[in-house]
Simulated assay, not measured.
Amino acid sequence: MQTGLFHTRLHVTTALLGAPVLTLDLLVNTPQKKVSGVARVFKSTYPPVNFFANVWGTYSQLHLHPSTEGHIILTLAGNPSGPTSQIAETFHLQGILGLDWASGFASYKYCYQGNWQDVQHATVSQASIPHPEPVPHHPIPLYAVAVQHAQASGDLAQLKAVVLQGEQQLASSDALRSALQQLNAEITRLEAR
């Protein structure tokens, strides 16, 4: 079992075709045995469901026998605004999971459009948590606004001053040097008019 503070994502589903799928994104605080996060229920068949709630709760470890691995008993409640709001709870879950938080069973209910929906004996499985893709770095001209303003106004002297200032401050960067060359070409084109 993990200790400390960790994130887990769980899918809670039944084998029924078109049944709702519950996704729990949970932050588990093992020292305090508390859990918080979000619950999303999605169902694409008629009537479609797109339910969201902030959730909170507790868990305890259950060892039926010292030689057995044990289980986690998870209890969650939720609503759209969190535990300190005065909004009535719209979500409840009771589940039993393995100590690895990767599998188990749960029953839950949620209130969607004024009606409570019950899902009994659903299977819990751990969902993969995608790592964010690295954002490619693209050089951004630092003087773009000044250049655009000078171009729009047709003030050639102002455009030259902006390009000269950019050259002085950023002459060491190859990518920016290329951008400055393009701006110089634009100045030459404007002068030719």
Score class of each variant (00 low, 15 high):
Q2M: 10
T3G: 12
T3N: 12
L5S: 05
F6W: 07
T8F: 11
R9C: 05
R9A: 04
T13Q: 12
T13W: 03
A15N: 07
G18Y: 08
P20A: 08
V21A: 14
T23W: 03
D25P: 07
L27R: 11
N29T: 04
N29Q: 02
N29V: 02
T30Y: 08
Q32C: 05
V35F: 06
S36Q: 07
R40A: 07
V41M: 05
Y46C: 08
P47H: 03
P47A: 08
P48N: 06
P48L: 07
F52H: 10
N54Q: 15
N54P: 00
V55P: 00
W56V: 01
T58W: 00
Y59T: 03
Y59S: 03
Q61Y: 13
Q61K: 12
Q61A: 14
H63N: 08
H63G: 13
H65K: 12
E69W: 02
G70C: 03
H71E: 15
I72A: 12
I72L: 15
L74C: 07
G82K: 02
T84G: 01
T84W: 00
S85P: 03
Q86I: 04
I87L: 01
I87M: 00
I87R: 00
A88K: 04
E89W: 00
T90W: 00
G95N: 04
G95F: 02
I96F: 08
I96N: 06
L97R: 04
L97W: 03
L97Q: 11
L97F: 05
G98D: 15
G98V: 01
D100F: 03
S103H: 12
G104H: 05
Y108H: 04
K109N: 13
Y110T: 02
C111K: 10
C111I: 00
G114S: 03
Q117Y: 05
Q117D: 10
V119M: 08
Q120F: 12
Q120A: 13
H121V: 10
A122T: 03
V124Y: 09
A127W: 08
P130D: 06
P130G: 10
H131L: 15
E133F: 10
P134C: 02
P134Q: 06
P136N: 12
H137K: 09
P139I: 13
Y143F: 15
Y143R: 12
A144M: 07
V147N: 04
A150Y: 08
Q151D: 14
A152D: 11
S153I: 09
S153P: 05
S153N: 05
D155N: 15
K160V: 12
A161G: 08
L164F: 10
G166P: 07
E167W: 15
Q168G: 14
S172Y: 14
A175P: 11
R177T: 14
S178H: 14
A179V: 10
L180W: 14
L180Y: 09
Q181N: 10
Q181E: 15
Q181M: 15
L183D: 13
L183V: 10
N184V: 03
A185I: 06
E186P: 11
I187G: 08
I187C: 13
L190Q: 11
E191T: 03
A192D: 08
